Computed example of a mutant assay.
Amino acid sequence: MTTRTLSRPLRVFTSVAAVSAIALAPAVAGQAGIASAAPNDTGSSTTDAPGVATPSVIHLAGTENTRTFASYTTTSGKHISPAVIRSDNLSKLTASDLRKLKSLKVTSIVDLRTQIEYTVQPDKAVPGATRKSYDILGQTPITNLVDLSSAYRAYITAPSARAGFRKTLLDIKNTTSKGNSVLFHCSAGKDRTGWTAALVLSILGVDRGTIERDYLASNTYRHASPNDPLNGVRIEWLRTSFNTAKAKYGSLDGYLRKGLGLTTNDLNTLRANLLS
């Protein structure tokens, strides 16, 4: 296996066994209107992968994949608030980065990583922000950390993963209800973070093509190839989650309501807080 020298940290896995597995793995891998809106579940899962997205980037010296959804609009033409931020790990934030996040009114940091990941690369504390840890994959088979297709299925099927995504979406709802911003992240800001971003955009009513472009933009910001599973993403992984949600719950809306236990009020409040 060729060693790749990076200026950024690689994903951290939950055990020596997981790291060893990499060497064996193949290199693959209007309020009335708001109230009645349903999560966007349109779009073909068999079309060619979409092109490059144009997300709203937050330039931080200590991260490389930090952005908001403010440049996107919904299918009904509504604009999205910049109050929700997706990122990679925050272990290398500079003093200037911390000031910037504080100025953006970030009061909640949601860490989707496993315990060993945040122990090895602990987040820098953002002044005025509370960090929450919602481990998505720590209670699933350890191979999910190197077998990305299985991981994206586990986002739908694993109780611990569903609990983490539920808490994250509720934290976004509660934080933005107070007029503040929330940042969610994992290690690379591409897989667990990528699915969370897809859920937020789907709930808000963004078209599937834009959601897929936002997901694939991690390849651009991480300077990675889709064939590099440690640093890049492949569109079939994201589609695996969407397809698994549809197969298990009938639709993405079914996954949100039955799988994550979100209520109509939860979904409507997210839209009310984040759309204009």
Rank of each mutant, 00 (worst) to 15 (best):
L169Y: 02
A217T: 07
K92H: 12
I116E: 01
A95L: 13
I211H: 00
L256R: 03
G179F: 13
K248Q: 15
A224T: 04
Y249C: 08
T264D: 15
I85S: 01
S20W: 04
A61N: 13
Y155N: 04
A27R: 14
V233S: 02
S108Q: 07
C186S: 14
G33Q: 15
I203R: 01
F165H: 04
K190I: 05
L137Y: 04
G254I: 05
T130A: 13
T130W: 09
S202C: 08
L6V: 08
L275Y: 01
V19K: 06
A188T: 05
K178E: 13
V233D: 00
S36A: 15
P50G: 13
L256E: 01
G77L: 12
A27S: 14
P50Y: 07
L262T: 01
P127R: 09
G189P: 01
T119L: 06
L204F: 02
F165S: 00
A247T: 14
S276C: 10
S87E: 10
A27V: 15
P127C: 09
Y118Q: 09
R239N: 11
D135W: 00
T2G: 10
S149Q: 12
L267Q: 03
A23E: 15
G164M: 03
D135Y: 05
S241Q: 06
R222K: 15
G250P: 05
L90W: 00
A125W: 07
A154T: 11
S160Y: 13
S7A: 14
D97A: 09
S15Q: 07
Y249E: 11
L6P: 05
S177Q: 11
V12M: 05
A197I: 03
F165G: 00
T157G: 03
T74M: 15
A154I: 06
L112V: 07
K190W: 06
T63F: 00
T143C: 07
V52H: 06
T143W: 05
L24W: 06
S181Y: 03
G77I: 15
V200C: 04
N180L: 07
T193N: 03
K105T: 10
R67Q: 05
K78M: 15
L252N: 02
L112S: 03
L137M: 14
P26C: 13
R113W: 06
L6W: 07
T63I: 06
K100H: 12
L270D: 01
S7H: 08
G194V: 09
R11I: 12
T168H: 06
S44I: 09
A188Q: 12
L275Q: 05
L252C: 13
V126I: 14
T193S: 14
I80A: 03
I156A: 14
R113F: 05
R131S: 10
